[in-house]
Every structure is written in C-alpha cells, then in structure tokens.
Design a protein around this nucleic acid. Structure first.
Lengths: 338, 338
DNA sequence: TGTTAGCACTCACTCTCTCTGAGTGCTAAG
DNA sequence: CTTAGCACTCAGAGAGAGTGAGTGCTAACA
C-alpha cells in the first residue's frame, strides 16, 4: 500500500466529511501533488481494494466503511484541543455537581450540542457497587417508601403497598436486618436465590417483611443499567439517515446497551456494518470509558453519521471522559480526606 | 344554515378523516341524496362561509379549522364504546398501581398506542398538595438525601452536599422543625419570603440548617408541574406535519404546559389556529381532566393532526380519564376506611 | 324556485424526453 | 510512471404533453 494511495484515501475522507458529496479526482488535486489522471488511476485501485466506492459510474468516490476504518485507525490526525477549546468545553460542564449522574448528563448534553449528534451515556454494570443504605419510611396507610443508596451514589426510591401496616417493632427489625445482612453487600449478590435464603432467615417476620425485600430486589434490578440517550433530534435532521430507522433506533435502548457492553475498555470506533446491524445504516458510534478511582465507571458515546468529523470530535469525547474521570475521582478523594 | 349543508359538511369531514385527500362532490353523493351539481353548489357556499377550502381550483374540498370546529361542536356523533372496546381499554390499564403517576402514565401510553398520536399528561398545579413528610438521611461525608413526600403521593429526593457534617442533635432539631413548621403546609406557601422567615426562626441552627431548607424550596419548585409527553414518534410518521415543527414542539414542554393550564375544566378540543400558534400547524389537541375526590387532579391530552378520528378517539380519551378518576378516588376511599 | 345534466375549463401530477456537466476510463505521448 | 486529451456515462434539472379528478356555469326540467 503505497504512500500516495494513503494520502489520496485520506483526502477523499477529509473532503467527503466536509462536503457530503462524492469526491472527484480534481478535488483531490488540492491535497495531493499529482494530476487528476494519476489520481483517478489510484482511486480505481483503491476501489478495487474496497476502500472507496462509486454511487454510480459518473460520480466521484465515497469512502466505504473499510476506508473509514483505515482512516480512523491509521491515517487520521486528531486535532489537538487548543486552550480556548478546552476552556469552552470546561464551561459546558458544571463547576460543581451533586450526583455523578448529573455531571455525566451535562457532558452528554454538551457533546450532543457540540457535535450535532446523538450521545449516549451508560454506567457500567453496577456489579461492584455496594448497598450503602436502605431506609423504609411509612407514608400513609399501608404505604411505604423504600429508599436505597448505593456506594456509587445512586439513590432510588420506590413506593410499595403492603397488605398490613407494619408495627414499629417490625420496622426496627427490618432496619437491623438490613444493617446486618445487606449493608455493604454488592448488588450482584442480590440474586433471587440469595434473597430467598435471607427472607428465610427472618423467621417469624418473614410473612410481613418479605414483600419489602422483594421490592428491594426489584429495585436493584431496575438499577442494573442506566442508559441515557440525548440529542436524538440531531439525528432526525441528518440527511444521511433513514427516518424510520432512527425511530426504531430510539425505541430500543436495549440493543444499544448490549452494544456498549461489547466495547473494549478504551476508545472505540465502530461503523454500522461492523455491528450486528442494529444501528442505523451509515452511522458510526464512538465510545470512550470514564472511570472512578481507577475502575471503569461508565461509557460516553457519540452516535452520528459515518461522515463525521472524527479528527475533531474524538478529542472532544476523550476530553470529556477524562474530565469526568478527574472530577469524580477528585471529589471522591477530598471526601475521604475529611 | 340549512340541514343539507350541514350534512354535506359533515360528510366532507368524515370522508377527509378517512382518506386524507380533498373530497370531491361525487364522493359526497354516497352520503347525501343529491346530484353532484347540487352538492357542488352547496360546497361553493360552504366555502364562502369559510367552512371549507380548496387547495387549488381543480381539487376537492378540505375542511378549514372553522369547519372542524362546527363538526366537533355540533355535527359529530361520538361512537359509543362497545363492551368489548371497554374491556380492551381496561386491559391496557394496570389492575393495580402504586403511584398515581404510574397509572396515569399507563393510560397515556395506551392512548398514544391506540390513536397513533402523541399524548400528554399533566398534574394540576399542586397548589393544594401538602407536605406530608420530609426526611433527611445522611449518606456519606457531608452528603445528605432529602426526601419529601406530598399529600398527593409524590415523592421526590434530592442529594445535597453541605459545608459541614451535621450532628445528631442538629438533625433531630431539623426533624422537629419540619414537623412543626412544614408538615401539612400547602406547597404554595413555600415562597421565598416565607422560607426566609422560617430560617430566621431557626435561631442558632440557622447557619448550618438553612441550606437544607433552601434545597427543600428548590424541590417544591421542581415538583411544581409535571408534564409527560408520550408517543412523539407517532407524530414524526404523520405526513400532515412538518418535521422541524415537531422537533421544536418536542423541545419546549413549557408552552404545552401553559396551554394545558388554559384549558377549561371539561373536555376541550382546540385546533392549531386557535392556539397562540405554539402547536404544530394542522394539529389539534384534545384534553380532558381527571380528578380525585371531586377535585381536578390533572389533565390527559391527545395531540394529533386536525384530521383525526374525533368520533372514536374522544370517547377513548374520556373513558380513560373517567377510569383514572374512579381508580384513584376508589383507592383513596379504601385507604381511608382502614 | 330549487335541482340536475351537460359541458368547457383548470391544474396538480406523472411520464417522457432532452440537455447539461461533473465525473469517469482509456489511450497515446512525454 | 505520469499526464494530457478524448470519448463516454449518467444523475439531475427542466420543459412539454397527456391524464383525470375536480370544478363553475348554463340551460333545461320538475
């Protein structure tokens, strides 16, 4: 694969990203020192090798996903962020944040806004988060709110309705029960089987209190994954996509979640033909993880057309994930200090 | 306004609702016993009076919003629900529900599904709901969760971060303070001014505890209104609408909320030219309130094209609101019994 | 006087055809 | 190996003709 060919491929991608129109040999002349005829010959070979394609015989060339693959992996030069850009990105994140979710949501929104793409943010499977607190608060006749807080700072409440009112004593028992058996337990251990054992251990209280435990189990399941897609509307106005595909895409977050689970731990760029076909045709999805105290805490992703400004947007994405990582880790440490 | 004219208008609307194409005089002959020429004459007059219009000279007629208005107010005969239909609708609502929001959300989803329109559901301004419980739960270094429950059953939690850790005594003071000064208070009384007075009354505790109170104030403000739109995707596939309008519509819930506030207490049908122009062109919005113990508790609405099957969908909407009313009122009573 | 049949007219839509130009591949000369 | 030149291709825009669903108007009819 000779050097000029790579340059030409790179130029085709760069040009196509900007114009969205098939790129002809003349347009390439601005990038590569050679005549249009030479470039045409090279492009014909690139096409044979599967990196380019022609929508029709008398049109210019468009990169195939294989072409993008090569471009992203080997050819592209990322635009390093200038100080002003960094400042701008920083200004889009909150100075202070309360829950990690808030921070990550702001980043997701900011990224969607900057790139005019959809963004996705997902927490890692909270296998490692622990239950740090469970409270049961009576709120009315036979109505109770269960509040669960995890070590990763997530809070979940659920209203539940029991068959009987609980006595003060029963509540206190449950409180102790939670403290002894659930606090500090990883969510992953709250399986149906384990829960059954636990309820059995409640002895005479089992009858009345087991509904609370099973609600708690439900809550941990709901907490299991959290995927949030922002800026879908940006996709709708993107002419590279088929409207109906976007709609079906928006409807199933499940597949998206599975996809995110399949990404590696670092920066990841996938094009729609490389996925199991769930994503929108002609789309690409870029993901990068953020972490907390050295452990992966979640993934931030960008979903847009294949024709996307990788050189610019990948640094944006990575800057955001690194800022998130810093901010949550930093806060964690100052908390531990005091 | 003679009887035959009304019949013709009605036929035009009925036909247009089904076909979506401008309706010609021949098509009307199936509904009204008269020759096409006669019908043409009548339609020409209806056009003069502003009930019909022609997209272009050689096309059939389309109802204007004035035509729809007359149709909906005077001409339309609602299709009464059959027992099977009622059963079908019932099956789309949960048998049992935990929060009112869950119930209302199911109804909203079901209605969106049935009508292939968007639906909206909003609670009434919770001026009358009272604070029934406030709990402050420590969750980590300087981190507290405030949990607020209102008389209407809404639960809200908020994480807040203080400058100092609170002592047990401070927490207890706050607990008592809430019980004495806030429990049973209507949310509407939690104004900035009142809050200031209250914090002053805390005396020496003011410094440390006032952040909690101000967070609480924020929470009540956030709780203020709750609007939920479902089935937006149905609008996107509706060819009567302009895509970009739908997107801007989806982006501002605020205007929708204001609109809902302006509806009367009963069934309400509005066409886009009759609103302040916020809604999508060619759309209509139908709202009906549901209540709890005799008081309006919220509004369920249907947003779709003006060309919508009013005769069928209005009964659906009203059936749902009446079921919601029954279900929440019923549960309220059984709660009070025990 | 209201209704209807008949007729000329209108005009969005569709289809076909042509024209244009950006792009190609190939060939032959440098 | 590179390049200039040339013939060729084909999507897309635009013009023109044909079609048909619809109209308004007029004159005859009950």
């Amino acid at each position: 694969m000779d050097d000029r060919k790579l340059k030409i491929l790179s130029a085709v991608v760069d040009e196509y990203i900007v114009t969205g129109e098939p790129v002809g040999s003349k347009a390439i002349m601005a990038h590569v020192k050679a005549s249009s005829a030479t470039i045409r010959n090279e492009m014909a070979e690139l096409e044979k090798q599967g990196f380019l394609e022609q929508p029709h015989t008398s049109a210019g060339r468009v990169p195939t996903y294989k072409g993008y693959r090569l471009y992203v992996d080997k050819l592209m030069e990322q635009d390093p962020l200038s100080e002003e850009e960094k400042k701008q990105l920083d200004s889009m994140l909150p100075d202070d944040f309360i829950t990690e979710k808030d921070l990550v949501e702001s980043a997701s929104l900011a990224l969607a806004d900057l790139t005019k793409c959809a963004t996705v943010v997902a927490n890692s499977t909270p296998k490692f988060s622990l239950i740090s607190k469970v409270e049961v608060i009576p709120t009315g006749k036979r109505m109770y709110v269960i509040l669960m807080i995890t070590s990763s700072g997530e809070i979940k409440n659920k209203v539940c309705r029991l068959e009987f009112d609980l006595t003060h004593e029963q509540l206190e028992f449950f409180d102790n029960f939670v403290k002894q058996n659930l606090s500090g337990i990883p969510l992953s251990e709250l399986t149906d089987a384990n829960i059954e054992k636990l309820t059995e251990a409640m002895g005479t209280y089992m009858m009345t209190l087991s509904p609370l435990v099973s609600e708690l189990l439900k809550m941990t399941k709901e907490l299991d994954r959290d995927v949030m897609v922002k800026g879908q509307k940006n996709l709708l106005t993107c002419k590279d996509f088929d409207q109906t595909e976007i709609i079906t895409f928006m409807e199933n977050e499940k597949e998206l979640m599975d996809f995110i689970d399949s990404t590696f731990s670092g920066l990841n760029v996938k094009f729609s033909p490389e996925t199991d076909g769930f994503v929108i045709h002609n789309s690409s999805i870029i993901t990068a993880p953020f972490s907390k105290g050295g452990k992966t805490a979640g993934t931030l992703g960008l979903i847009g057309p294949m024709r996307i400004d990788y050189a610019k947007f990948i640094p944006y994405l990575e800057y955001f994930t690194s800022r998130i990582t810093d901010m949550i880790t930093e806060r964690d440490e100052t908390d531990d200090d005091k």
